[in-house]
Nucleic acid binder design. Sequence first.
RNA 1: GCUGCUGUAGCUCAGUCGGUAGAGCGCGUCCUUGGUAAGGACGAGGUCAAGGGUUCAAGUCCCUUCAGCAGCUCCA
Length: 747
Amino acid sequence: MVRVELPDGAIVEAEETESPLDIAGRLGARLKAAVLAAQIDGTTVDAVRPFGEVVAAGTDRPVKLRLLTDRDTEALGVLRHSAAHVMARAVMRLFPDVQLAFGPTTASGFYYDFDLPRPIREEDFAAIEAEMKRIVDDAEPFERFNLPREEALSFCEGLKQGFKVEHIGGGLKEHPTLGFYRQGEFVDLCRGPHIPDAGRIKAFKVVSVAGAHWKGDQGGRPLQRLYGTAFFSKKDLDAYLEQIEEAKRRDHRVLGKRMGLFHIDPDVGQGLVLWLPKGAMIRGTLEEFLKKELIRRGYEPVYSPHIAKLSLYETSGHFPHYRESQFPPMGDNALEEPVKRHFAYLEVLKNWYSASEDKDGVLASAKNYDEAMQKDIGAFSAEGSKLAEKVSAEPSFEGKLFVLRLWLSEQDKYLLKPMNCPHHAMMYKSRPRSYKQLPLRLAEFGTVYRHEQSGELNGMLRVRGLTQDDAHLFCTPEQVEQEFRDTLELTRFVLESVGLHDYRVQLSVRDPGSDKYVGSEENWATAEAALRKVLTESGLNFVTAEGEAAFYGPKADFMVRDALGREWQLGTVQLDYNLPERFGLEYIGADNTPHRPVMIHRAPFGSMERFVGMLIEHFAGAFPLWLAPEQIRVLPLSEKTNEDADRITAKLRDAGFRAVCDKQDAKLQAKIREAQLDLIPYMFVVGPKEAAAGAVAVRDRIEGDLGAMPLEAAIEKLRAEVDARTVRQVAKPSTVAVASAGEANEY
RNA sequence: GCUGCUGUAGCUCAGUCGGUAGAGCGCGUCCUUGGUAAGGACGAGGUCAAGGGUUCAAGUCCCUUCAGCAGCUCCA
């Protein structure tokens, strides 16, 4: 007997052989039909799993039971995982020689990785879905059984499922017994849980196919990953598909092109953004806004060049560490190779000469050496022949070495800057610093270049030249807490100013077991405590991620949710104990001895490219007045009022507005339609009546015709809206985001 | 970078079996001079991503390159 406590507190008794589904049956036939899975003491299990298999023998306290139906998001994950099995079964029926890899659930559905001889194409989806429908209609149950590992191994070998065999021997080698699920002819190694039978899947769809690798390893066997999704109802599925359509309509690449915001041209380079006038206006407005705010908060704007000597980034550690994702250094001279070789050889000769008794013999060798060098360096290029001549002209080894060393020292290589911090560190270092001058806050919209893998590039969201709204705060360890607090406050202010209110913070701290971190134990402890304290005090929603800290310090990332419910990682605040060390930064403390400052990197927008890209999608292109590249379109009723409209446009520009006069030969309706489609916040119609009265007929993009008002009144109205940075409307998606599923089922 | 898919006018797309390139929107000119989401007529616009191959003949079939998309892997 097992005692089972229901959510309402009632206790019922069940046999060990009975299952949650049996309990549901006792409570009512409708409930039984609705049950998809169960939770016993918080663990999600098959609804048909007997209590005896789940509850430890001899348990006499009542176990808590929740019956999961389509009202519980946990059940959605179970449903989807079962749908993944159904899809795999369908694929195995349709394609011979399918090898199954993993088939877990994801936030919005599921996938299954297959190894099969021919590629699955989108044209195949209909057939796969039809086969899935047959399986669902048959409504066969999912039956669980366990096998001891040896039997499980031979069982999978019998099924010719090599990946499963490998997985049992690898990732699951600690498991003494292994779970399987059978559904008709289909059997899969799986820990479950599953829904009672396939008939419970009311809505599903094969979504896309893509490449993947066994165990996510680039070198691993290539697989085909078939994505699908499943929902409790057709309605939920349709809502989900509609949301995907909405996201497509909002795609910043589409809107950016249509609205003339930016352009990326293969002749310029992949991932290099051309900011067209309208996009540049949005970015410029944001930059101006932020810069003003920064100055108010004691930051000092600086500028630094786009390139610097390679050695700067060798000092900072960026070049050696991220070499693969940087543009190659400039000024690579192929002559360097032979010069270095000869330099090393000459040093040997020199040492030999000074140590040797037979000085003449060494000198004889040196003669041969000159010949060899002429062949090697002299014949290399015009530059090489000049250099070789100079080297030959030097009689002593010291002299030759000097000439080569001088040449080598002149071979400066330069790198497009991958980070702004080394430049700012050098600014810090440009003069002695006292604790009295700290914190020093250097701010720059600094463009950095990173050679991201071609497959990663994505419109403005992932680019190869990006402009960080960067700043570096150099402060004493005691000041870290206050600086972090101020930075949080600033980031908050900035996000709220563009109408982003839904965000959370991820605090990334050390993995206490790892030794990959730089900086003293004490510094880390203080820093993490300070960050956590400030975050707690701030009342912000934050989670701590252990082991996610950078090797040089803890960080706090801002995760922002947009109008479609998608989460974006934007701003970041990072503490750094490493760079001050590497650059030997110091300040003189009150005790008149040198100390090492702490550096804080922070970027509330992240990068201008990514931030503006996100904003385009968030607003669906309909920017609030203060950000709109074109704020007002002045519409003369006919050519007769063109001049009046011009005058009004000029006045609006004088008043600081971005206004354009539409003098096309078209009817008012057509001009209005065009302005509406261009998402212009306000239209000022100027006809003979308005011209005579010094007025404009204001049309609001959102509200429509507001009637005529004196130009001054209209200006005041709009100015108030700009000054308050009012966000009047965030284009809402037509549907609400559908709940995401729970944990992934990995096998 | 890897796997798969795609590339036709400024944009969105059609183009059958390999046989001289099409539409809508946009653009230009003219007519029209208008009151809150499309007035009309005419016209210009193409090395079918680039290069190579097969063929009497290639937008169409094959190969290579480039670019884009989706996913994987990466992200200071």
